[in-house]
Amino acid sequence: MKHFTFAFVLFMLGVSILGCAAPVSQPTAAPSVCTLRLATTTSTYDSGLLDAILPDFEKKFNCHVDVVAVGTGQALEIGSKGDADVVLVHARAGEDKFVKDGFAQERFDVMYNDFVLVGPKEDPAQVKRAQSAQQAFKLIADSGAPFASRGDKSGTNSKELSIWASAGITPTKGMKWYNALGQGMGETLLASNEGKFYALTDRGTWLSMTAKLPNLEIVFGGNTIDENPDKHLHNPYGVMAVNPDKFSGINAAMAKNFVQWILSPATQERIGAYGKDKFGQALFYANAAK
């Protein structure tokens, strides 16, 4: 019994000490270390773009960037609660509202990538003959071929919904061919591969996952961003420094540096080059105003 007591207390002590080490080891606890918190979408992070370009910023400004990669909606929400210093997202309407509500003073174009429509190689809806995204969607709806939607209010999801709207179609639960998954891009593509669904995806995720999606191919959108016949499928990313007047604790000076840095010609060039070695084509097109 005594030994049990002893061992138990020792165990508790052990975890406590281990636990106490956790807050100590976090750099944010030390005010001398500069941190900039960036709330962004999963696509910029998961594609590897940020890992490729951020070290340059961190070195130049001696400031560590904490990347919180979440859905676009959540990233904007984090920014509007003052829990991030900079926001880098792709949801034009949401971004404009963010500025209008005073959470940021200004939004800047950073880059764009594009969306493509992928589907089963057999292409049952014969989408390949379409001239525009709007027409492609119409063909899917007319044929009743199954379609997978992210259904998660992400940037991709809102783009998809806007295309349906332009085609005069309102997807509802009653439509048997329409599947709102409520999942991330990767999961949606995997489900589409299994179920032979059509799906709208950003090109970056498609390129990084092609090997795992043998049943799918691009049915509309071209093989590279240049070949995409429909400019409506362009997906612009904007950067915004969170308004420091609204919250206390915002690293405003560094946020400003970040915006200037990501818009600078040198960073823009790096963004434009990213992906060429790995995929043989760029994943993003830099388009900051010169």
């Binding site: 956790a22 807050p23 080891s25 976090q26 944010t28 606890a29 918190r37 904490d66 919180v68 609660k81 003052g82 829990d83 919250f247 206390s248 604790g249 915002i250």
Partner: peptide, 17 residues
């Protein structure tokens, strides 16, 4: 723990704490 929440001043959000 959000900066706009009641314990925002702790600055614990997005930390191990």
């Amino acid at each position: 723990l959000s900066r706009s929440g009641p314990f925002g001043s702790l600055a614990w959000l997005f930390t191990p704490s």
